[in-house]
Design a binder for these strands. Structure first.
Lengths: 211, 211, 211, 211
DNA sequence: CTGTAAGCGAGACGGTACGTCTAGTCTTTTA
DNA sequence: TAAAAGACTAGACGTACCGTCTCGCTTACAG
């Protein structure tokens, strides 16, 4: 959501100077996204981004360390909104299924899903990317997911007391969806998602009874 | 398990010439593995493999299309054995937990796990790799896993009739483990694995009662 | 001797505004000189000059078209004084030798000589520089040299009538010195300079006899 | 005359491998020459040479350290032949004038002269170039020139005994020609060359009488 | 004594070339 | 004819300067 360099504040010197060109920034983000969809991750080169965005390479390197950072910026802008929990006053279980569907749709989405898959892929290749990806997006999303899930379970009177138990429940919900999408490359059907939600909520209820 | 070209049989031409140098093949496989562990995926270049294996680049290209194929060869040699189901005459549920632990250990293993992660990562970048990875290893392993899980559930009298239901149970078992390892980059504790197995087997029992 | 733009007078526009910052001008000239001595011609970049002079690039481009112009400004300030003929009432031939020694010393000088060599070098690379260098310094110096040589030869009663002959004599004096310094990269010994002067003056006498 | 790497002999290893591609070498030399004539020294970039020669940059860098080395290769191939002394059985003095004319023509030549001027220019900018230029061409040519001049003077019975005196005579011959061409950017007329030769030979005779 | 226009430090920008790296192909020689 | 050696074309890498531009501050004359 925020840019790579903290430069979008006051100019630190008493003096002046040009500010960051926002349209160039957006052009870079869009170019990277488009290239990813059109040519795949290997086609997302700094050269190609610069070319398509009509921007000098140096301008890209001034604001981003690598193409991964560019994709991360894209993910941060798209991901948070797309994966926000939508607490209404309806059926909590339906809400949970809805959230799982939203994740599934996000992962299948042409642009955002491609970025997500690419970043996971690159994180598997390179520890630095892994750290940036997790710190820059994944952990924040996980925190939001944990809060959302707790909210749902509390309304169903079966929220676990500990955070660890909640996290395990979350991973049992998200794990199969991610696994199918990321490793197997297949989608999860609505029925699967529904069964999954039911099963894990049932497990939470049982844990509640036992705990 | 076997190399890319069927050249380790009779020379297909009636004519002469030396046959494939098996020690060169092993040197290439080992070099790729070592480089992956020492320098990460980016350090696994054809150039570096050739150099370290003391082999000409052309020799590599003669037998493998890309470094992905080399890693796949490695995975096929290591993976099948490491992930084989080990049906004894003990407690089926303990056997299931054992299998999940074996997967967890495999994913954390320095060499084989690194290869696995790299291939999943590359599959996320490149559809061709994805296809090769799935056809060359993943689907076969999935077939073995389905058979193994069915065996366990049958001994517990709760195997579903359909293959689809069995696959869903499998993904609920493997999904969280892969998700934690591949996406979150964390391990699953033995307790988590045990709860997971119990929960999914319980789910299978319930499905049996309902179905 | 003076800067590129005639701005150090009245403001050409009827209107107001600050005048040229003389200390910035000197800082630029000095920075260019220092960089040339310390890092060679390749180290004399607009960026480096601006940096070292504590001046914005735009300020440099406002007053000079290129780094060559900056070096020319330096040369004009140093060169005319260093290469001025020094007509006393002593022996004319000694005076001539003295002038040749002055040239030799100038070419070997760390700062001024380096500028001179650099400009000759750049003139050999780029016709525009060649023109600016010749018009901005070389031809004026040549005029002064021709006058000085004529003065000396007249006092020796052997000045040629035509300008062309005088120029040829001048080139026979300066040519070997420049050649050794610029092309061969070596100095001319005092003895060589003395013989050179004697020989060319002798030649002038003979020309006089013949002509 | 010879290439940058000593690779055009036997392969140093007992083993095999491809040899240097001679046509690529010639294409590079020609491209550099053409670019120099068409676009000047600044237009001679590695990129442009590679492009015009239809050769990969890496191939250029494999065999030459810089564009200066390429130009030197060109100069060595062209220069020695063009500046060879041509001892016949005619008038020695005419032979000397002929040699000076050959130098003058060489310096004015579109291709070879441009290379020569560029290399002198670059030598003035960069000490490494200066050393390479002098060691790679200039000193060898100087040796040939000293031998040629001695031959001529001996046939005129006025060769100096010492090498230093001979070198001074040579510099008095070549100096004015180079000075006019390199510094002033003008040519020397045949009359000037003739007078120059006469004058220096006269000087040699006088030195003979004195010494 | 105040507005206004230029000079200035700062530095972002679109470019071009740099010299390096790896990919994948091709060629030569040895075994 | 496989294999080692390695030259070849191709193209991305990240860096350094180029010359242009915009920004906001400062300064000094003009009204």
């Amino acid at each position: 959501m925020t840019s790579t360099r903290p430069s979008t504040g006051k100019n630190p010197h008493g003096h002046a100077g040009p500010r960051r060109n926002v349209s160039a920034r957006q052009a870079v983000l869009d170019a990277a996204d488009d290239l990813l969809v059109e040519r795949g991750f290997a086609g997302v080169t700094m050269e190609a981004i610069a070319n398509r965005a009509g921007v000098a390479k140096q301008t890209i390197y001034r604001w981003w360390k690598s193409k991964v950072e560019i994709l991360l910026d894209n993910l941060e802008e798209d991901g948070e909104a797309a994966l926000a929990w939508n607490h209404g006053d309806g059926e909590p279980l339906a809400e949970l299924v809805g959230q799982l569907s939203r994740l599934q749709a996000f992962l299948r989405d042409e642009a955002a899903g491609a970025v997500m898959h690419s970043l996971i892929g690159q994180a598997l290749h390179d520890p630095d990317t892994a750290q940036r990806f997790r710190e820059g997006f994944l952990l924040a999303q996980r925190r939001r997911d944990l809060a959302g899930l707790r909210n749902v379970l509390e309304r169903l009177d079966c929220a676990p007391t500990g955070d660890a138990e909640l996290a395990e429940l979350l991973d049992r919900l998200l794990g199969p969806i991610y696994y199918r999408s990321v490793v197997l490359g297949i989608s999860s059907s609505p029925e699967f998602l529904e069964e999954l939600a039911h099963s894990v909520v049932g497990q939470a209820r049982e844990g509640r009874r036992r705990g």
